[in-house]
Write a protein that binds this DNA or RNA. Structure first.
Lengths: 196, 196
DNA sequence: ATGAATTTTCAGTAATTACTGAAAATTCAA
DNA sequence: TTGAATTTTCAGTAATTACTGAAAATTCAT
């Protein structure tokens, strides 16, 4: 029966760091700690394990796990001959990142995009509204581009995506070269490169 | 003297959306609304303008502006013959995104990287610690790569970065091609492409 | 079906975070 | 300097969010 005392120092440090950081993210302290614990655990944990290790009430753990499930950050497992539910984090950290990014997008970005799209359909009735719409259009376009690009990257397999990330500088060079060849319009550039 | 009533519907909608979203971000409702108001305003605003438009107390606005300044999201201006400070958002939305990303990195990622680096220097004294370190190493590597790549992209001028984002699919193709040519090791790939 | 094991819900309370008004500090023109 | 204009601080309070224990609901072996 491992309680917080039994968490080795390294593990304890990691868990409590995630607790503190949790608040800077949207996530709360408890949920952060629960996830950290699951993440570094060599095997799946059940709710009682977690409650004991972190000295949280059982109900708090239940809520925390529900929250983590809604973020799709934990996987549910069952041990043969044990009715309790066991939770584990994906083995692949890239997978974790991808899911996290997807969820944040769904919760934090999509609603804003909808709102902006709605607002941009309205006919402005004053200079104040006209200017506001102008700004909203700029914002919408930026977010939209970021998301389209993110979609593309997200489709890559982890390995390929990791490669892509090692290549920022190189990609720049490619772009500069293409620029010289094709002129500067992004649309034109995209069209040209896609035709290859 | 514009108060909240005088905010046209479109502007009001935008402002209150940012208030609600603010909480999903780390930022609070008030700060979100203040920034939204500044962002869509055609001219710089002073603290009294903001307090009046949003019906917040003057001190609340003061705190909110301080917060926004700490995020480097507002620029300070002075009107000739007026002692009050006026605030505005950068005209370039890409600039806003860049600053936001930098600050989030500094506040939310760097501390975690340091913690991980520290933890990875310790000699594990049990299997639990050994496994935890293994996981931390994976996490550290992922974050480290993401950041290096982000540095590269961030160095690009806005225009070029926007182009890059239009190119996700194309970049994938380039990588797949390089793969076939050079074998799959990321290190090898990076070396090869950088040598060009 | 029954009931033991397990999970979830939820009302009450604790803890945290946000907001205000008043007072203090700062800034700057005269 | 002085003091009016402006901004900041801060103690008190309001509002929100997090956490708990007890009770309800669910699940599943018998």
């Amino acid at each position: 029966m491992p309680n917080r005392e039994n968490l080795p120092p390294l593990n304890r440090q990691f868990v409590s760091h995630f607790g503190e950081m949790g608040s800077r993210w949207g996530i709360n302290r408890t949920v952060g700690q629960i996830y950290a614990l699951i993440f570094i655990s060599p095997h799946a944990l059940n709710a009682d394990d977690i409650a004991e290790a972190l000295e949280f009430s059982r109900s708090n753990v239940s809520m925390g796990l529900k929250e983590l499930q809604s973020w799709r950050l934990v996987k549910l497992r069952h041990q043969p001959g044990d009715r309790r539910e066991y939770f584990e984090a994906p083995a692949d950290v890239w997978e974790i990142f991808r899911v996290l990014a997807e969820e944040r997008r769904r919760r934090e970005i999509e609603p804003t995009l909808s709102m902006l799209r709605m607002a941009l359909l309205e006919a402005p009735t004053s200079d104040a509204e006209r200017h506001a719409q102008e700004r909203m259009k700029e914002m919408h376009e930026l977010i939209d581009r970021l998301m389209t690009w993110f979609d593309d990257v997200q489709k890559l397999a982890p390995e390929t995506a990791m490669q892509l990330m090692g290549m920022g500088a190189t990609v720049t060079k490619v772009l500069e070269f293409k620029d010289r060849m094709t002129g500067k319009s992004p649309a034109k550039l995209a069209a040209t490169t896609k035709d290859n």
